[in-house]
Design a protein around this nucleic acid. Structure first.
Lengths: 189, 189
DNA sequence: GTTATCATTTGATCTATATCAAATTCAGGT
DNA sequence: ACCTGAATTTGATATAGATCAAATGATAAC
């Protein structure tokens, strides 16, 4: 537990011990098996998750097709952002892609902690800012880069991802089909 | 001035009067003519702008092509988010698309106010969260919708935009060429 | 070891949208 | 009103990547 909070502080900035103690009262540990779905499309999800161990994936189902939108690994947060932050029905599913240990925080706890602790509010601001910056990158990469460039880019920034999730999920995350990804990986001899 | 702060509170949530007074000390009013460029590619921009009157546009120049990324109108913020929030050289230019009155806040002021006032930190969190939610929508719209659907969607959520910015900027914002936008607007008779 | 299931590759077409090019319409300045 | 350059439309062609289909390869259960 100490260790986890340490990780959070390391990644996102320091917290007062007062705040840390209070956080501990508000969170729940959960364990999930690979393949379990923790958020479904249409659901109002008011939980945000922090991956202690394992990996999770948010995806859309658009006319039957599974399109990955976000991956989270150790020490990262995941939620249906439209639902958790936008108070709307989730367009996403979220599933665990490995057996995992996660921390769950409800929006209620989240709001209570934000209101009470300036440093928690700051932490959240940093978390949200990071997501915003990643999305900005993602938008320009979809808009300006070819399938091949996008693949090379993800390889360069997250080389581990290839090991941990099947290619079909990577393909849809990169906005291309599985076939195109395969061709990009095995350039015509 | 009162009015502006009122608008901000209305849009993003209340502020203590203590905080409001301090904000006033930190901001600058600026006026710009249509066409003026206030941020250039490559620059470390540590300013965020709030549009009091007029309109601004953030855009990329990718091998000579002007690609709009963001529009801001009255009571909206604009900055080079990569530079202001990510402390990196700006990939964007920002220009005023009409004669405008804007408020400028430096990152230094921004950080000072965030540190000092819990409610300012909260305000920023809300601003950033809104951008994140918009970007999320933008990503799914680029990924899942046809050129025609994207155009209809923007018409439905920002009908005013068509009046205020030339079509070429809208086209590139929607991730299509000017010609495609024109065809989408005038379906083959 | 054999079978069944899933992941990946390879091949042949198809399609939405880009690109290139030219014609038309519009708006501000004189 | 007339001119000039910008904005928009229209047309013909090209292309990256999608789609459809089938083959191959890997993994795990039995």
């Amino acid at each position: 537990m100490e260790m986890i909070i340490n990780q959070i502080e390391k990644e996102y900035g320091p917290l007062s011990s007062d705040c840390k103690n209070e956080i501990i009262k508000h969170i729940h540990f959960l364990t999930f098996k690979k393949g379990e779905i923790i958020v479904r499309e249409g659901q109002y999800s008011d939980k945000i998750y922090f991956i202690v161990e394992g990996a999770a994936r948010a995806y859309y189902l658009v006319d039957g097709k599974d399109v990955s939108d976000y991956f989270a690994f150790e020490n990262e947060f995941i939620s249906s952002i439209i639902s958790f932050f936008g108070h709307q029905p989730s367009p996403h599913y979220i599933e665990l892609v490995q057996d995992s240990i996660v921390i769950e925080v409800s929006r209620k706890s989240f709001d209570t902690l934000s209101k009470r602790f300036h440093d928690f509010e700051h932490l959240i601001r940093i978390v949200v800012t990071k997501v915003m910056l990643q999305q900005q990158e993602r938008i320009s990469s979809i808009l300006f880069q070819s399938a091949e460039q996008r693949y090379k880019h993800i390889l360069s920034i997250r080389p581990d991802i290839i090991q941990r999730v099947p290619l079909k999920h990577i393909a849809s995350y990169l906005g291309m089909t599985l076939e195109t990804l395969s061709r990009v990986r095995n350039p015509k001899t």
